[in-house]
Design a protein around this nucleic acid. Structure first.
Lengths: 141, 141
DNA sequence: ACATATGTAACCATTTTGGATACATATAAC
DNA sequence: GTTATATGTATCCAAAATGGTTACATATGT
């Protein structure tokens, strides 16, 4: 998969650490080690999903739109991965073959089962959990 | 994701339908609607994973190496997806940032939880299940 | 006004993906 | 043993995805 989900999660965790202080795309980019445009593109998607907001102008930047404990990794996944599925099928199998005729429908069902299991697990973790894990790790390490 | 997992599953289900009769890469390709080389590349991976075998020469082709009920979608997933993970992280975050320093380790753990949930679900379906679903669907439809 | 920061478009290089051709090797059939 | 068949693999290619870069119109705080 691409790294957008990971970077989006990084962004939100960073914002949680900011504790209400707006963060510019440049500041976030320096934490992620990428460029501000990439961050702004993701922030736009996160804002559309209701996970972040942005303040224009001097002293502005991105903020969480909700409490970290109310943002799950599933929320992030849904905000970023527009396709909403890790599996892809091969288009247009042979309709004259017994297998080709039905494989797509049958396989899609099983793929969706796996996708649901993945998403259910993602729902069990919040940005607050990640922030706590990081705080503990930095204190210990 | 790419379509290799779906095509590999199609191949194995096709072989299950062949009931012991060898299938050439060309025949399989016509069912999948792709080219024989792509099929052979996947068959090589499936054979390395112990899921299929191949017979050279006239009348040859690919065969299942195990009973369809003994091949799970997790077996296919592991045979095909060498990376074994749907999630990717962004490399080299800023070590001087509290979040950048620890996000990778922490997030990787949660990603692996989700990956495990996905794989556990894949393990519940076998090629025999898919073949049965297809047979039922073709009879009904 | 002026500096700052977003949102978005445009362009680019790299990688991934799947398709196409080619061919050495191995096997079956005769 | 010769011939037809089929694999396994290398090579090349075009299209798409991915993330980086520049640019700039718009909005906001000072």
């Amino acid at each position: 998969m691409n790294t957008r989900f990971a970077v989006a999660t990084h962004i939100l965790t960073f914002l949680a650490y900011q504790a209400g202080e707006p963060a510019t795309s440049e500041l976030i980019a320096s934490s992620v080690n990428t460029n501000p445009t990439f961050i702004r593109r993701l922030l736009t998607q996160l804002a559309k999903a209701g996970l972040s907001t942005s303040q224009l102008g001097a002293g502005g930047g991105a903020l969480l739109a909700r409490a970290p404990r109310d943002i799950s990794l599933l929320d992030v996944y849904r905000a970023i991965d527009e396709e909403q599925q890790v599996f892809a099928i091969h288009e247009a199998p042979n309709p004259n073959c017994p297998v080709g005729r039905s494989i797509d429908v049958v396989l899609k069902g099983r793929m969706m089962d796996a996708e649901r299991a993945l998403q259910a697990q993602l729902a069990t973790t919040t940005i607050a959990d990640l922030a706590a894990d990081i705080a503990k790790r930095n204190k210990a390490g």
